[in-house]
């Protein structure tokens, strides 16, 4: 402890002044250095080699980013100018949507075809007879089919006939997709008129079947028919695109 005391004991020789001066310089330098480190940030204190390395990294990075930007610009131009291929693909996709819409019954369709009017004065025409008519129309190449009848409200009501459409017997008339319809029924089918009309007239076919039930069948060909009724599409609950 004696030596500890001598360390703190005041002395005033010349060399002590030098020691004091050196320590003052040290304190000064420490503060200066700490301040310059804090105030000037990392780059100002970095050595030349480090700076060159940082600069290298930055220019590499900027090169990479510029390349990425160029490739993205090229992609953007390709997409926005719409080369023939992409426009053709878009048109094709639109066309396909329309085609699928006609099949699914979600868009109206027009074209040549036939109208088949079926009367049923004895209330004998059952759903299976109408189903036979429908099958014949489909076999003959009908592309869009609509079934009209008189609904409960007394108005003529049309039901778009698609793959899922169900025809059921009721006490009077039938139910198509849950819509109660009574005679007279009228199928509107778009397809080749002569083929469709011929399919209706096959001996022992639908006309004969309707006649056996006491009804009549009138087939009218037309150059321009419209299937305006739409089928409400519900999203599939279980099936997913593969």
């Amino acid at each position: 402890m004696a030596s500890w005391r001598t360390l703190l004991r005041p002395r005033a020789r010349r060399v002590d002044v030098l020691v004091a001066l050196l320590l003052a310089v040290l304190g000064f330098a420490v503060v200066v250095q700490v301040r310059s480190t804090q105030s000037t940030g990392v780059l100002a204190n970095a050595r030349q080699g480090d700076l060159v390395q940082i600069l290298d990294e930055l220019s590499n990075r900027s090169d990479r980013l510029r390349q990425e930007s160029e490739s993205l610009t090229a992609t953007q131009q390709r997409l926005s100018t719409g080369t023939g291929a992409s426009q053709a693909a878009l048109a094709e996709a639109r066309k396909r949507t329309q085609q699928l819409g006609i099949l699914a019954g979600t868009v109206a369709a027009t074209g040549t075809g036939v109208q088949v009017r079926i009367t049923d004065p004895k209330n004998q025409v059952s759903a299976s007879v109408l189903l036979d008519v429908l099958e014949e129309l489909r076999n003959a190449g009908a592309e869009a089919v609509m079934l009209e009848g008189t609904a409960d409200s007394g108005q003529i009501t049309a039901v778009r006939v698609v793959a899922q459409t169900a025809l059921e017997d009721r006490d009077t008339g039938i139910a198509a997709d849950g819509t109660h319809l009574v005679a007279p029924f009228r199928f509107t089918a778009i397809g080749d008129p002569s083929t469709l009309a011929g399919a209706m007239a096959i001996p022992g076919g639908v006309e004969d079947a309707v006649r056996q039930q006491g009804g009549t069948t009138v087939v009218t060909r037309s150059n321009r028919l419209r299937v305006g009724a739409l089928h409400a599409l519900s999203a599939p609950r279980y099936a997913r695109p593969d």
Partner: peptide, 21 residues
Amino acid sequence: MIPALALALGVALGLVLHPTV
């Protein structure tokens, strides 16, 4: 004691003068 005081004086000078390196 004097060296400690001198050190403190240096620190104080550095704080007051705000020198740049």
